[in-house]
Structures are given as C-alpha cells and as structure tokens.
Simulated assay, not measured.
Amino acid sequence: MIKNENIYVTKTFLPPQEEYNNILKRVWETKWLTNRGELVLELESKLKKHLRVSNVLATSNGTVPLQIALKLLGKGGEIITTPFSYIATTSAIIWENCKPVFVDIHPEYLTIDETKIEAAITSNTTAILATHVFGNPCAVDEIENIAQKYNLKVIYDAAHCFGVQFKGQSIFNYGNISTCSFHATKLFHTGEGGALFCNDKELEQKAFYTHNFGHKGTLDFYGLGINAKMNELQAAMGLSVLPYMDSILTERKKIIDFYNDNLNFSNLRKIKIRDNTAWNYSYYPVIFDSEEVLLRVEKTLNANNIFPRRYFYPSLNTIQFIKGANMPISESIASRILCLPLFVGLSKNNLVETVTIINKN
C-alpha cells in the first residue's frame, strides 16, 4: 500500500526556479552578496509600493526587528504584552533586559484585551508590545490612546500581517514601530527574513544604523548596533515571490472559503476578524470546545497523514523560564486552538478529508 503524502499546516511557496535563478545571476555579476546590495534596495522599494508604506527596512529575520525596537524603545523597563503569541515575542523582551507584563486576550479576536491594559501599567512601564494575531489587528486606536495618556511607546509584532489593511491603510503604519516576518512559512517570504516599519524619521534613522552595527559611513559610528541586514540571496527570493502575491491570496481565500462553507461549527468556532480589516488569509485556526476534543481530532488527522499545528501553544505565561501571572482566557484558548492546513497547492481531496475527520469528531 502506497502511503499518502504528508499534509502539513503549511508549505513554502516557491516561484519557478528559473525566475529565481535569473535574479541570482545579478548577484554573480556584481559579486555583491550582502551589505545592502542592489537586490535588497530593489526589494525594499517594491515592498513600499506593494504595501503602500513610506519605509521598509529589510532584515535578516523577523525577530531582530523586535529586538531593535525593544532596544530603542523598551529602555529596560516593563513591557505590557500578550501571552498569546509565538515565543519570539516574549523572548525578545527578556533578551533585551526588559520585563514582560502579560495582559489577557480578547476571547474572540484573540488579540491583547485593550480594556485590561491600563490596570497593568506601573511607573516602570515603558512600552506596549502587542501581536496582531493571525493577521487580525489589535484595537490599535484604543491602544494608541492609552499610550498617549501614559507616555508609552507602542511596538506591534505584525509577523503575520503582510498585506493586511486596517481602516484603509497598511497595518504596518500603526505604532511607533511595527515588525514583520518573511520566514519561509509566511505568506510572503525571503526564505528567512523580516522587516521593520517606522513612520518617525528620527526613529527610523536610529533603527537603520542599529541594524548595521551602528555605522556612520565606514569609519565612524552613530552608536550601538547589531548585524540585522538582509543579504542578496534572501532579497532575490523575495523579488521572485512578490509578483505572485495576488494569485497566492486568491488560492488561500478559496481554501478558507471551503473551510467556512463545510466545517460544522456547532462544536467549534473560528477567529473573529476585526471590523474594517482587509485580511490576508494567513492562517485558519479553529477553537474546539475542549482540549480533549482537540487531541482526539489531532490524533485522527495525524493517523491520516494530516498534520495541523497547535498554534499558539502553550500560553506564554505558563512557560517555565517566563513564569507569568495566570491568564485564564489565553490559557484556555491555547489549549483548544488548532491551525488547519492552508497553502497554495492544497488539493480538494485533502480539504475534504480534513473537514470530514473534524466534522465526525
């Protein structure tokens, strides 16, 4: 008996290899592989146009922009953040010698509950670091009002948000700094990579030199910096993927429409997308009535070579080296949420099989 191909929660979109190779030829011609070569500059320029933003700083991965933002804005203080995110969000806070202070999440939007933020603010609070979960925007207007009231900075982990629009503009335009991941599993990718977005010119300049060792020319320095630069090979991948974004979104929307039309929602529910959002179809999470049901469904799916992901799990406040306060909503959601397969090329048969298994449980 021939074993069926494993179906994972995602599969990296790869453009035609010839198109990638044609862009790579320019690297061989220039002999310029890193230090902001012409491909990185071209990618930043095209991303600005595609995303309708005023600036893009391409980086080597999606975590270093968070670290840069925290280095510049966190100032070693308390950072109000969400327990429902990938580990990188909280790890970056701790790595930059700041203290994460968790605030529980909204049970439907799954983003940080803006109504609980003020109660967590102390004299040591310096910033709010919130995650737009699965491309679903936080309550950005309310968070901005709180930040202004208490003189706090706002950083958004927008790792899932490539192409998301909120109230008619890019979600990357909100906050003092927004960051994005271009990891191979993301909607748009450069293999490994990321970006930092900032509308304040002075802060943008600080972020720029910070991502390049602090350089001011070749022999002088503005200040402290690290190496967060994207290289030309990464940029080449991004340049070859970017022309396919419309078709990628179209295919992903078809899959999500199938899930929406065929799943039985009497015993599970989906994330609520915030009003005024042009969503990017980045993930398809479903929330079961209990962890027991989730585990039973997951086991059956795995037995049929279908491998969804418990994402985000566990709730970050429960991780041993973090040891945050109890966050009942986040802990409950994290124990019951499962992201279903969603990628270009996912077949109708695979979708039918996935839905059938879930509906039977």
Rank of each mutant, 00 (worst) to 15 (best):
206 K>I: 03
207 A>D: 03
223 G>R: 12
214 G>I: 05
225 G>T: 10
222 Y>G: 03
184 A>E: 12
204 E>T: 04
223 G>W: 14
187 L>S: 03
237 M>P: 00
206 K>Q: 15
203 L>C: 09
184 A>S: 14
185 T>H: 07
208 F>E: 06
185 T>E: 10
234 Q>V: 04
241 V>N: 08
199 N>Q: 15
199 N>P: 09
209 Y>E: 14
228 A>H: 00
192 E>Y: 03
213 F>M: 12
190 T>W: 10
202 E>P: 00
221 F>E: 11
200 D>K: 13
220 D>L: 10
227 N>H: 14
196 L>Y: 00
224 L>D: 13
213 F>G: 01
226 I>G: 07
200 D>Q: 09
210 T>Q: 08
239 L>M: 07
228 A>Y: 01
222 Y>S: 07
199 N>F: 07
218 T>G: 12
225 G>D: 08
241 V>L: 13
185 T>N: 09
228 A>R: 00
231 N>K: 05
204 E>K: 14
235 A>G: 06
201 K>C: 02
239 L>R: 09
185 T>R: 05
201 K>R: 12
220 D>P: 05
212 N>W: 03
195 A>T: 08
231 N>T: 03
205 Q>S: 13
226 I>L: 12
197 F>G: 03
187 L>N: 02
233 L>C: 00
226 I>M: 15
208 F>C: 01
235 A>N: 12
230 M>Y: 06
230 M>E: 04
193 G>T: 12
231 N>M: 06
239 L>P: 04
203 L>Y: 11
234 Q>K: 03
